[in-house]
């Protein structure tokens, strides 16, 4: 098996690792770095559970190879809370009741983070459109939409 050495920053920490050329970014995060917060739901780019930010853009990490992330800055759910304080999105998800089984939650949060970086004050329609690739089977989505709007209001205040 061909391998390559890659350098990535994950949640602010630098890593240099030799990986198989066919390893996905999702496998790299979960198996090499033991960051299991990012979830495998379908491995075919259809559920969004594996969403992480690569250089600020939301990516289905099951569809990206680890070697393609060489040199990139990666951000996962484990990087959201800082110094013992939850990120506004995390707080808003709890407050709005947007979490049930929680399996879609890490991917939802990362997609929502990318959305808020792009549109600091999104409308419900924008949220529904931008997050369409993230599937949730528990909540019916409404509370997730409300949570993201709530987080956007917290942002403004902060």
């Amino acid at each position: 098996m061909k391998t390559l050495t890659i350098q990535v920053t994950v949640n602010g920490e630098a890593f240099c690792k030799t990986v198989g050329v066919n390893m996905t970014l999702l496998e790299f995060l979960r198996e090499e770095l033991h960051l299991t917060g990012t979830k495998l739901g379908c491995n075919e780019g259809e559920c969004g559970a594996c969403t992480v930010l690569v250089d600020g853009k939301p990516v289905n990490s099951c569809l990206m190879l680890a070697v393609e992330a060489d040199g990139a800055e990666i951000f996962t759910v484990e990087g959201l809370a800082k110094d013992g304080t939850l990120h506004p999105l995390q707080e808003a998800f709890i407050e709005a009741g947007a979490v049930q089984c929680g399996f879609c939650t890490p991917g939802m949060l990362m997609s929502a983070k990318a959305l808020l970086d792009k549109y600091p004050k999104p409308t419900a329609q924008q949220i529904r459109k931008e997050l369409e690739g993230n599937i949730c089977r528990c909540t019916g989505y409404d509370r997730i939409v409300k949570a993201i709007i709530l987080a956007s209001e917290m942002n403004k205040e902060g």
Partner: peptide, 12 residues
């Protein structure tokens, strides 16, 4: 608020 929510939103 759910008691399991913090663990869930932090990916733990």
């Amino acid at each position: 608020a759910r008691k399991d929510a913090i663990e869930k939103v932090t990916g733990q």
